[in-house]
Design a binder for these strands. Sequence first.
DNA 1: TTGACATGTCACTGTGTGGTGACTACTGTC
DNA 2: GACAGTAGTCACCACACAGTGACATGTCAA
Lengths: 214, 214
Amino acid sequence: MPKRTPTNPVRSRDAEATRLRIIEAVGRLLVREGFGALGINAVAREAGVDKVLIYRYFGGIDHLLEAWGSTSDFWPTVAEILGEAPESDPAELAAGMLKRHLQALRARPHTLEVMAWEAVTRHPLTRILDDIRETRAEQLMMAMPPPLRGVKFDLPAISALLGAGMQHLLLRSRTVDRFNGVTIGSPEGWERIEAALQTLCRALVESSVTPGTR
Amino acid sequence: MPKRTPTNPVRSRDAEATRLRIIEAVGRLLVREGFGALGINAVAREAGVDKVLIYRYFGGIDHLLEAWGSTSDFWPTVAEILGEAPESDPAELAAGMLKRHLQALRARPHTLEVMAWEAVTRHPLTRILDDIRETRAEQLMMAMPPPLRGVKFDLPAISALLGAGMQHLLLRSRTVDRFNGVTIGSPEGWERIEAALQTLCRALVESSVTPGTR
DNA sequence: TTGACATGTCACTGTGTGGTGACTACTGTC
DNA sequence: GACAGTAGTCACCACACAGTGACATGTCAA
């Protein structure tokens, strides 16, 4: 039996650094090519690491993604965009959320790019985002003044609308998809979304977001 | 050399019907699973046809998609949504386009689902949609009253914004992507989009779209 | 120094994919 | 009926992928 000797030089031998390199490779890959390009081989190539190490350290692409999700600054940014401290006035609130969206969009387009990919592909990570959305929606709902609380002013719908951007609602309309009791695709679902969109727009118009203002 | 005899029964022997079955399979697959699931093998499976026939009849997946695009009712619907006959009043126009979007969304969710997929994946078919958008944008631009024509009221940006939905802009922001002279991702690109969005919202608010009205 | 363990490398399997060549069987024309 | 052309079937190739087993080597403690 021939003795096998590695042709490539053995690398750094620093497990923690290697883990980090892998996770960072996930982020780069995700931002550059989206979830579709995410695979064991691709991540291994991007990180300059043998794919066996990915299996050994993370146990597979799903766990690797979870690790990325819990270490990267992606989810906190999402939470921030979705609205950490809701204002009391619904008009201000809607306008504020949209403003945050636009600001984040301008400052960190990669983040929302990944958010959109997530919404489109309905990746397992979607569950995490859904949880964040739901929590934020409840917070916002509770922050409403009593006459508006959850009756006509459809806060969950607005939150969903802004949460991952319109595309989330546009894309998943076919499947029976539920968000905070709104069945996306049903007539009353669309009516609620229409109403929410209108309210949002009114708030935006009345807000301080004007052209040319930075 | 052993004589080869087909184990499966030979099928209908109707080329036109087979072509149609293949094209219809593309539509079903696209609606059900999106562009990501679209492949020679998948289409062949869906159509119940040997993939060799796809190569022979269409010459590959790209040409097959073009054939689907030119025979299905997808693109006419897109053109309709993007606005066939622009109104003269910009507020009416923006509101009308958004109303058409919402109506189409409610009536035919599959169509916009495919549109969104197209926007996300930047599939070769995107070129076709871009052409439609550009044409519509020029039409709308020309239909503007003189004081508004192409100065502050950013019609191409609005058209793009509504064209494939917000997701188009959200997703492709990272790459240097040009639409009607607006470099998506550049500061002035975002400012124009912001302004366009605000104008759109004002138009929507002033339009006849009110909650509960059908 | 020696041994255990962790870290990294290589080789391999199985599966799915896009794509092509070669075969069989049907159909219409002369 | 013989023939050509077309429709359909099968077998195969090269490639990329996810996943696993086995080997080599560095590190650290006893």
